[in-house]
Design a binder for these strands. Structure first.
Lengths: 346, 346
DNA sequence: GTGAAAGCGCTAACAA
DNA sequence: TTGTTAGCGCTTTCAC
């Protein structure tokens, strides 16, 4: 194979020479600052086009102390919920002329820390993060220096940072009310272990309060915290073997819903005939499950968009030397009724 | 709210002053080059830790002409297939000490071009791309200057670039053979419109050849190209109303499979009793559909890992001044048998 | 072993 | 309206 010579990278100087002007003039037409004679502008633009020149973002960012890009740290790219969120973020960024970099913490606080540092070293203008930990000292440090930061989907106590969440409390309230209205009075709830920061706590709380509001009492035996698929099956067996069997199950996560469905199938329990099942988070396949799943829908796209827009606002404010008071925005979930709780789909 | 003064960013100079050494010494301990007295190294490290200093990646990259990061351009983040691919890429990057930046072309050639330019301006060391177009002049340009580049999941004709794909031809061959072995002889295939570059062409070709190999003839009426959900339903109606009804359907995309399932449901056709259904791509929910779906599984994780590893190799080679001969790696799909084609799951 | 200084490619005063 | 020049924060010769 021929050894292709590594063509030296084009710089602003090459353009300047080609156009017969100084490098500052080239810079000016690229950045559209100052007045430039039309003829000059044309010459320069022609040179840029002819050479197919693209400015070095590193050099530009170094000088300007900004990169016009923001970072997103997600904790679970596998969850389809986040894909919808991502779309909202992408759209907002695109509209504002920001690029978006994505990193995955896999819900590991250590990896999360590395990801944040990575973004800081890259001089990103701001960060949106779905926090994996609630005591990361970096959070406080960033908040202290008013670094543009938005928490998404999870609240972190003790730090004042812009936060965009769904009303998880209301989510399970909606779910329980729906179930209660259908005459269910032994409603079990399944959760993955909460890590202290997750919306799952709020969802559990909403469940309890909704029960109380409907005159039902909270039976600890109906609260199942499972970690693995096997846990889930074991918990289900136990639940169905005792005396006070549940007549409905509330799942708090869409993967967990699949595991519950598996367990139910294994145990030959029919949904919704034998038991009602209500899931959290709409997904592409919610309506294709057997039976089509009644779910709590979170406004994922809107959450993403809101988070990105707030962040971009904060970045702009900081450039003007202002500091915005952090706020928490809470968006409302809705109930999507299908067949898994006993209703007939029209 | 108090106006927090934007703390001036720490630089290598601050560390040098704190440690009582020159900035070059600080640079040396950070980069682990040269010999450094243990005492000096410790002093510097202490200063770095004390100040919580993080080097500016822009400055460093500008000087070193490299960023130790690679870019990934995906065409459809919504497809769960890509999430598995992504995991493989992430793992490989992490192991090699590279960071990964992700951009989304949404299968739009124009956006794809912008994404590539964005990455080039950022001086990324290499790019993995799931091409959205086959005639992007940038491809040839990059190939010509031996820029580290890997095509993923789709081949592009006319340019010599490292490519990692699944054997789509074999995928549909497997599918058709399975169906034929079950006695099906009117096998329909559903595809989204191919954009000239997509694996769908190869999948269609595999379908035709497999039919021939099994002594079945290709009936154009059984090849359905649909764009929307409505198309899908219409096509299905037409298919089932005619004389030569199909006894099996081969879907070539996992979202399309959901649409097919919807259409079948609407038309009251039972799977697998009335018709067999075989899907392409394993997903988390394949086995939870009604009925559990028999699918062609692509080695998604492995594809991602392979692509990233090849790219990183190419980057290293280029740094040594060598040029690697581009190769195409083709990984093998497998058949995952469940219940949607009539088998009984044990 | 360590420091001084040049420069990576660009932007933004400051002059002209 | 345009050119000259001083850095942005870092790495890397080249001296010592």
């Amino acid at each position: 194979m021929t050894d292709i010579p590594a063509k030296r990278k084009l710089t602003i100087e090459d353009v300047a020479r080609q156009a017969g002007v100084s490098i500052s003039t080239v810079s000016r037409v690229m950045n559209n600052t100052d007045y430039i004679a039309d003829a000059t502008r044309r010459k320069v633009q022609d040179a840029i086009d002819a050479l197919d020149y693209r400015p070095n973002a590193l050099a530009r960012g170094l000088k300007q102390m900004k990169t016009d890009s923001i970072g997103l740290i997600l904790s679970d790219l596998q969850n389809p919920f986040w894909l919808m969120v991502l779309e909202g973020i992408e759209d907002a960024c695109q509209e504002a002329g920001y690029s978006l970099l994505i990193l995955n913490s896999r819900d590991d606080p250590e990896k999360e820390g590395k990801n944040i540092k990575e973004f800081l070293m890259r001089q990103l203008d701001g960060i949106i993060i779905n926090p994996a930990s609630e005591d990361n000292p970096l959070f406080a440090a960033l908040a202290a220096e008013a670094f543009p930061l938005v928490f998404l989907n999870r609240r972190v106590k003790g730090v004042e940072v812009d936060t965009v969440v769904a009303d998880n409390f209301k989510g399970t309230m909606l779910a329980v009310s729906h179930l209660a209205a259908l005459g269910k009075n032994r409603i079990a709830i399944f959760l993955y272990p909460a890590n202290g920061i997750s919306p799952r706590q709020e969802r559990l709380e909403g469940y309890k309060q909704a029960l109380a509001a409907h005159g039902l009492e909270t039976d600890p035996a109906l609260i199942k915290i499972v970690e693995t698929k096997e846990d889930c099956l074991a918990a289900m067996k136990q639940l169905l073997s005792g005396s006070g069997k549940p007549d409905a199950i509330l799942s708090t996560n869409n993967r967990l819903t699949l595991e519950i469905l598996d367990a139910l199938g294994t145990l030959n329990i029919a949904v919704p005939q034998d038991i009602a099942l209500l899931g959290y988070d709409e997904t592409e396949w919610s309506k294709h499950l057997n039976p089509p799943l009644t779910t709590i829908r979170q406004p994922a796209y809107e959450m993403g968009r809101e988070a990105a827009e707030r962040l971009i606002l904060a970045i702009a404010a900081k450039r003007r030397g202002e500091t915005m008071q952090p706020v928490t925005v809470q968006l409302e979930p809705t109930l999507v009724i299908r067949e898994s709780c006993g209703e007939i789909l029209q």
